[in-house]
Each structure stands twice: as structure tokens, then as C-alpha cells.
């Protein structure tokens, strides 16, 4: 697929195609949606089946579920601080969804739904709406003082307020672009080097020997992509927590 006409076609892996036959086509159910459903099912299965035994000394699945829980709990506790516990389910759901999407996308034949800006921006917009509503509910009109910090000279207001508003509005954009760009860049690199393997492999007798070089790079890249997948889910959760901290404590 990638080497049709001896060219590098690294972007066709992000195309959406309807699945589930005629039903999927009529409601626009793409493989991206299918992977979201699968990821959600895997998360629920991990938590439900993992925690079923409730052993003091956990087994493998229970250890995995408890590690995830503890990890996100630590993030929420550390970043939001006092009164942050009630946002734990929100951050945990976001973290697991992003993490499972990133990791699922590394499987052969799988699709990475976090490589679409529509998905990541949807998630980031959800975070943005939540932090704004939380800040408005907790602080009321005092929330708008966020855009004009105390102690600023009044003549700076025409500059400071638009800058702060733009800075605040750029949060969901930067949150979504970071995740989306990392995922796209990783998968494009994997595809490009995989294409090099095929193209070099067809170069007569020396070809297969040359092809081991991009193969070695791809092996290293897959390991690196696992790191990026976990790291980006972590960054998404940490930034959500930092924004929630700002919303709760307003400074």
C-alpha cells in the first residue's frame, strides 16, 4: 500500500474508512470510532476484571489497574492540591482514553484516533469548558480578575486584557496540537522508514543488506513511540490538572 508506484505514501494511514458494512456507511461509523469503542471496552475490562479479586497482594491485572489509579491519583493530588479529589474521575477518564488510544495505535493494522485533530481538539475543548465552568461556579464574577492581575498599572489594561484572553483561549489549541502533532509525526516516521525497507530491499543483491539499516531504525522508533504514547497521555493529564488548579485557586 505504501509503495504503490515506488513513492512514499505516509499519510494514507490517517484516512477514515467506514466499517461495519452498510450500517457503518449510512451513519458514518469509521474505523476511528470503532477503535474508540474498543479502547473504552479495554479500559472498562481492565478495571472491572482487574479489580474483581481485590487481593491484598495483587495479581498482574490488578497491579496494572492499581498502578494506573495510583499514578493519576498522584498527578491530581500533586497538581491540583487542596480540593482536587473531586476532579479525579474526569482526569482519570481522559488519561486512560488518550493512553489507550496512543497504545492501541501502535498495534499492527490498528488506527490511532488521537492522530486526528478533530478528536484531540474535542477532548481539549471539553477540558476548556470544564475549567471555565468550574472557575465560574467557584469564583463567580471574581473569575474575570484572572485576565487582569492585581497590581498591574491601570493604563496597561488595553494591552494586558486582550493578551491574557488570547493566552487563555490558546490553551485548548496548544493542548490538542501537542498530542495530535506527536502522534502524526511518530506514525509518519514509522511509515517512511518502513517504506525505505521495502524500496531498498528491491535493489538487487545489495538491497537486503542496505534494508537492515532502516529496519534497525524502525525497531528503535517503535520503542520510542511507546515512550511518546505514554508521555503524551501523561502530559495531557498533567496539563488538565494544572488548568484545573488554576480554575480552583485562581492565580
Amino acid at each position: 500500500m505504501a509503495t504503490e508506484g515506488k513513492t512514499i505514501d505516509a499519510l494514507s494511514q490517517f484516512e477514515l474508512t467506514p466499517v461495519l458494512g452498510i450500517i457503518g456507511r449510512s451513519v458514518g461509523f469509521s474505523q476511528s470510532n470503532l477503535h474508540m469503542v474498543v479502547a473504552s471496552g479495554l479500559i472498562i475490562a481492565l478495571l472491572v476484571y482487574g479489580m474483581r479479586s481485590r487481593a491484598v497482594v495483587p495479581g498482574r491485572l490488578q497491579a496494572a489497574a492499581e498502578t494506573m489509579y495510583d499514578f493519576v491519583h498522584g498527578i491530581v493530588d500533586e497538581q491540583i492540591g487542596h480540593g482536587g479529589k473531586r476532579f479525579f474521575p474526569f482526569v482519570f477518564a481522559l488519561f486512560m482514553f488518550v493512553l489507550m488510544g496512543n497504545l492501541l495505535g501502535l498495534m499492527p493494522y490498528a488506527f490511532t484516533y488521537t492522530s486526528h485533530i478533530a478528536v484531540t481538539f474535542g477532548l481539549a475543548l471539553l477540558v476548556f469548558v470544564v475549567i471555565t465552568v468550574v472557575a465560574l461556579v467557584i469564583h463567580g464574577k471574581h473569575f474575570f480578575s484572572y485576565f487582569f492581575p492585581e497590581g498591574t498599572p491601570i493604563w496597561l489594561a488595553p494591552i494586558i486584557i486582550p493578551v491574557e484572553v488570547v493566552s487563555y483561549l490558546s490553551r485548548p489549541i496548544s493542548l490538542s496540537i501537542r498530542l495530535f502533532a506527536n502522534m502524526v509525526a511518530g506514525h509518519v516516521m514509522l511509515k517512511v522508514f518502513a517504506t525505505f525497507i521495502v524500496l531498498l530491499g528491491g535493489l538487487g543483491t545489495v538491497g537486503p543488506f542496505l534494508a537492515t539499516l532502516p529496519l534497525a531504525i524502525n525497531v528503535a522508533l517503535v520503542a520510542f513511540e511507546v515512550l511518546v504514547a505514554v508521555l503524551q497521555a501523561y502530559v495531557f493529564a498533567v496539563l488538565t490538572s494544572i488548568y484545573l488548579h488554576d480554575a480552583v485557586h485562581l492565580h
Binding site: G151, I159, P162, V163, V166, S167, S170, H251
Partner: peptide, 22 residues
């Protein structure tokens, strides 16, 4: 211009998070 200024401000905040005064 405001976007550029806000971008620099964002980078500044990356290293000096706003804190203290409510």
C-alpha cells in the same frame, strides 16, 4: 501582535508559573 505577545507570555509562564497574589 496580541497573539505573538501571548505566545511569548505562554513560554514565560512555562518556566515561571503564575502564583501568589489572588
Amino acid at each position: 501582535l496580541m497573539g505573538g505577545v501571548a505566545g511569548v507570555l505562554n513560554v514565560f509562564r512555562l518556566f515561571n508559573p503564575r502564583s501568589g497574589a489572588k
